[in-house]
Computed example of a mutant assay.
Amino acid sequence: MKLIRKILFPVVPIYYVVTWLRNKLYDLGIKKSVSYDFPVICVGNLSVGGTGKTPMIEYLINLLKDDFKVATLSRGYKRKTSGFQLAGGLSDADTLGDEPFQFYNKFKNDILVAVDSDRNNGIRNLRNLEGKPNVILLDDAFQHRKVKARFNILLTTYSSIYTDDMVLPTGNLREPKSGAKRADVIVVTKCPYNLEVNTQNEIIKKIKPENDQHVFFSHITYSNAVFSSNTSIELKTLPNFTLVTGIANAKPLVDFLATYNLNFNHLNYSDHHDFSQQDILELQKHELIITTEKDYMRLKKYDILRPKLYYLPITIGLNDTQVFNKLIKDVVTPI
């Protein structure tokens, strides 16, 4: 794959110009963006792969759900449905996609969860509901310029900051680095715990934020127990198990579990892996399976796996939490 990416380097300038021109047409108003008279908050990134959008959306849900009628709107990557879908009692990862189904599974009593590849259509459908939301969180929509969000949160990982990357196909960026100027907030995710201030300042210098942009740093916090639908097991008491992951980068999770000196083997699938029947039959041979919460959403529907299937929840912690929370609350609170 790396060799193919290098071979495709001559395509990089073409991809750069096409995506830059697209953004410029939106910036100049030649291509139209729709704005709304209620708060729409977008969470996204410049790069492909996992930057921590799901835990950031969950952080925002927890911050806002007690005071506002919140909805999440995602594309519904790899779902087996089309058009607008509102999560309900019959929903699963096939109808919504794994991340939206995770939101619904966790917050179904507090928020609305919807998917639509056309975000404007999704917003219209949500606002036409009898119990319409007054705050909509757009998941992975930074490049969806047809919607002009009131507030844009751009995520970039500590181990692969967008300033050190280039556009596809040789690099991982979906658009040129200049797209970061659209962000109101830039969050460097998956940082080491208690990242030193000097290191933070070095990263901020590298990012070179605009005068009106804020840069924050976040880290992943793993639970000290794994969970199934009706029970839990503390990590320190886990017997031998198989770790199953279908995420962009499983290394932080593997490293965390290693700190407990646990005995496990790791089955590492591609991001958003579509588990086949053969995969399920192979997994059924393992006595205990630990997986991510996202992968659990796809695997728990299989009866032969459910008794042995557990997930490890994660949350995020932010530096300057009060400042970040106030920025969000100021966006959604009427003046």
Rank of each mutant, 00 (worst) to 15 (best):
N249A: 04
N211R: 13
I4P: 00
S232C: 06
T321I: 15
A248R: 05
P100M: 01
S160N: 15
K146I: 13
Y104A: 08
L90P: 00
I314K: 11
F9T: 11
L238G: 02
P192E: 03
K106R: 15
N23V: 02
F103D: 02
V11R: 03
D330F: 08
V113I: 03
S35W: 03
T245A: 04
K148S: 10
Q200F: 07
K206E: 12
K205Y: 03
F217S: 00
P307I: 08
Y26G: 01
V332Y: 02
N265R: 12
P176S: 09
K308R: 14
K285A: 12
L86P: 12
G246C: 08
I316L: 15
G131H: 12
T157H: 02
T163P: 09
F264S: 03
V48E: 05
K80I: 00
V17S: 10
Y158S: 07
N121E: 11
R127W: 04
L8S: 11
E234V: 06
L312G: 00
F142K: 00
G179D: 06
I316P: 06
P307R: 10
A71G: 01
T95M: 08
L63N: 03
T242C: 12
L8T: 09
D66Q: 13
T189I: 08
I289R: 09
E282A: 10
K208N: 15
K78A: 04
F275M: 01
L238W: 09
